[in-house]
């Protein structure tokens, strides 16, 4: 008796291989889309331009546009070198460093804000010293930046680290042997080759920073940023009151995303 007859192949109904994952994915997409569409449907009833030109709204927009780019810049300038070290070297305590990088992601932002307060709050040694020389670390734009950086920096670190990890170390060795020191090699080879991932990380960090609410509320409820202003208006006037600022926040993030993609020449946000 042939093996083929003893073990008949299961009659295949030839369903497309990706049917099940596509259906499950579609559910998620619908779940993303419905609130978005429902929210946008409210915009017709509201005077968006008029609401955005009130002094409170303009201050909030200005504060957000001032703080989020600075937080993103700080996260990038300090985070990308760290990402490079993590991608290239193993050392004693590396696990601990990696855990530290993830920590702000797993701690709820509002708790992160509370932690920041215990470190730099007005009645701590650092906070008191800074306030004494006229640089208050809480309830100031600096406080907003501290909160945003704490919460948003891990995105650029983690994404850039993956980008550097994907660059073959031998490309850097070749550069060294062609006469370049470690810094010029980083600048000429590692950075350009990991650019896509770094840009993606910067976009994620910026989006997270400008939308930051929980930690900001704890560290610097004043001066108001767009998210804290949205909260204040929601308490006072419900959903319709926040539509203008919410739309503005969305628009700013989309413009930044589009601009970075265009000038960074990355096809999608996360492509590697």
């Amino acid at each position: 008796m042939s093996l083929a007859r003893r073990f008949p192949t299961r009659r295949s109904s030839r369903l497309p291989e990706l049917l099940v994952p596509a259906l499950l994915g579609a559910l998620v997409l619908v779940y993303f889309a419905i609130p978005f569409v429902a929210f946008l449907a409210r915009t017709g009833a509201v005077d968006v331009v008029g609401e955005l030109s009130t002094p409170e709204a303009r201050v909030a927009i200005r504060n957000s546009l001032l703080t989020a780019p600075i937080s993103t810049a700080i996260s990038t300038v300090l985070g990308v070198p760290l990402a490079y070290v993590l991608a290239r070297r193993s050392f004693v305590g590396k696990r601990l460093v990696e855990a530290l990088v993830i920590l702000p992601l797993i701690v709820p932002p509002v708790v992160g804000g509370a932690m920041l307060l215990t470190a730099v709050g007005r009645f701590t040694p650092i906070g008191a010293a800074a306030a004494a020389v006229g640089i208050p670390l809480t309830d100031s734009l600096l406080g907003v930046i501290l909160a945003q950086t704490f919460v948003a920096a891990p995105f650029v670190i983690i994404t850039a680290r993956a980008g550097f990890g994907a660059v073959d170390e031998r490309l850097e060795q070749a550069s060294r042997s062609l006469g370049y020191g470690p810094l010029s090699t980083f600048w000429n080879v590692s950075l350009p080759l990991a650019r896509g991932a770094i840009v993606a990380g910067i976009v994620l960090t910026f989006a997270r920073a400008i939308g930051e609410f929980g930690a900001t509320m704890m560290v610097a409820y004043n001066p108001r940023t767009m998210p804290t202003r949205i909260w204040v208006e929601f308490i006072a006037g419900g959903i319709d009151a926040i539509v203008p600022l919410a739309l503005a926040l969305l628009a700013i993030t989309l413009v930044v995303l589009a601009a970075v993609q265009r000038f960074g020449r990355v096809p999608t946000v996360i492509d590697r």
């Binding site: 031998r170 060795q173 042997s177 006469g179």
Partner: peptide
């Protein structure tokens, strides 16, 4: 490495 005059070619393209 940058202070040595050594040409280097690996198995994989660099």
């Amino acid at each position: 490495p940058e202070a040595r005059r050594v040409g280097l070619v690996f198995q994989e393209s660099t």
